[in-house]
Amino acid sequence: MEIGGKKILRELSFSVSPGIIGLLGPNGAGKSTFIKLILGVMRPTKGEVLLNGKGNYGGEDPLTRVGFMPEARAFHPSMRGVDYVIFAGELQGMPRRDARRRANETLDCLGVGESRFRPMGQYSAGMIQKTKLAQALVHDPPLLILDEPTAGLDPPSREEMLELLRVLGDSHGKSILISTHLLGDVERTCDQVVVLNQGECLFCGKLLELLKPSKSLFQISFAGEMENPQEIFQSAGWEFTLGEEPGLGVVAGPPGESPTHLFQSIHRARGWVKKLVPVEPRLDEVFFTLIQNHRGGK
């Protein structure tokens, strides 16, 4: 995909299965362009985007099956929340009566309540995001594309929005594509992840796969008369990184390796393990490693 002669997305080829999918990438990675390609707002210079096996250029069917929640305000402040959602329903081809009924139901389900009759200029950030989610949901699409759904929300409202998304995905079978910078949101909500950087796809698959450690990592605290702990750990086949204090550190072994040998080696060296805690890789660490490796590779 090129804009003004500059390549924005290149050799991007992947497919995702239904579920909650996180679209991750630093600024300028091509997330917004990718969303515009899915919506058919932009056309790829090469290749195609298939939604449910159908292209979205020239035909109108695929977009009736998509609900899009934009990151921008995308409404006039003087418009009432309920009118905004009714309008979105009408634009999706719903008869006005159906759109009105569905708008009230959806806003009610999402917890906007009586505030839906107030102009949207008076809404809090949380209410705005919920109303934008309602307009994406009003025509009951199987696929929701949400651009930064938790942007600008305080922690309780953010938690509430994530909970709503989980319910929509788990209890109502919606496929949801969430584009966000907030890795914590993805970790808590998504089961699949697409990582983009500089227009290329670095990873596409299950979140658990991405977080699967390449080594067994443990935080260790030990004591005893061990003179050179580094050598003892190495003889057991584990790498040791000393922590801030003596007797503290991180040990890394082959993936899936049980630390039994480690215990035996320490015991032979007249030491004992006080604490051994497995270290789970965090998404932000994995994400930054992916990005750095990609930049380093270039």
Partner: peptide
């Protein structure tokens, strides 16, 4: 939260209904 998180998501589970109308 100020909107009642638990009640909000429960309401969504219980009251959300699919739409199967005809498009214009």
């Amino acid at each position: 939260s100020e909107f009642g998180l638990e009640s909000g998501s429960k309401k969504l589970i219980l009251e959300y209904r699919p739409w199967k109308g005809q498009r214009v």
